[in-house]
């Protein structure tokens, strides 16, 4: 299991390749990548603030639960903070399981929990000004399915 909270970009190809190579006995690897979306062409940047210390702890707790629940062979979570431009990769998760259903489900579980339980806050910087992204009710509701 590897958890990385960092300002620097990550190499999606190299990370995916290294993750898949070290999954002996696992038949399925799922990766998900989150990208800064430019909603209406007005986004200048996305600033991501986080709670250093708690962030690593919270993500580790979420990943450990996923490992146990789906019997995963491995988990990778990389999440960036700082100032990102549209099109940049914000984060990735990878899960390895014996079968694809478990790998997909665990990846969705990780994403649902990272969204609402990992201490990150996004601020959109546009030509018209800046504003904090509000949490959505459906994101909180998504946790209930687990």
């Amino acid at each position: 299991m590897r958890i990385a909270v960092q300002e620097d970009p990550f190499d999606l190809g190299a990370e995916s390749e290294a993750f898949a190579r070290n999954c002996a006995g696992m038949g399925a690897v799922v990766t998900f990548t989150g990208i800064v979306r430019d909603l209406d062409g007005a986004l200048t940047a996305m600033e991501i603030e986080h709670y250093a210390g708690m962030t690593e702890r919270a993500i580790t707790g979420i990943a450990e639960k996923a490992m146990a629940r789906w019997g995963l062979g491995d988990v990778l979570v990389i999440h960036r903070h700082g100032r990102l431009k549209p099109g940049e990769r914000i984060m990735m998760v990878a899960t390895a399981a014996r079968h694809r259903k478990d790998a997909f489900e665990a990846a969705e579980y990780l994403m649902d929990y990272l969204k609402s339980r990992a201490p990150f806050w996004k601020k959109e910087i546009t030509a018209r000004g800046a504003g904090w992204v509000a949490a959505r009710e459906e994101d909180e509701a998504a946790l209930n399915r687990w």
Partner: peptide, 9 residues
Amino acid sequence: AFFPPMTGG
């Protein structure tokens, strides 16, 4: 620590 609902992912 006090903060608004989180928006990770």
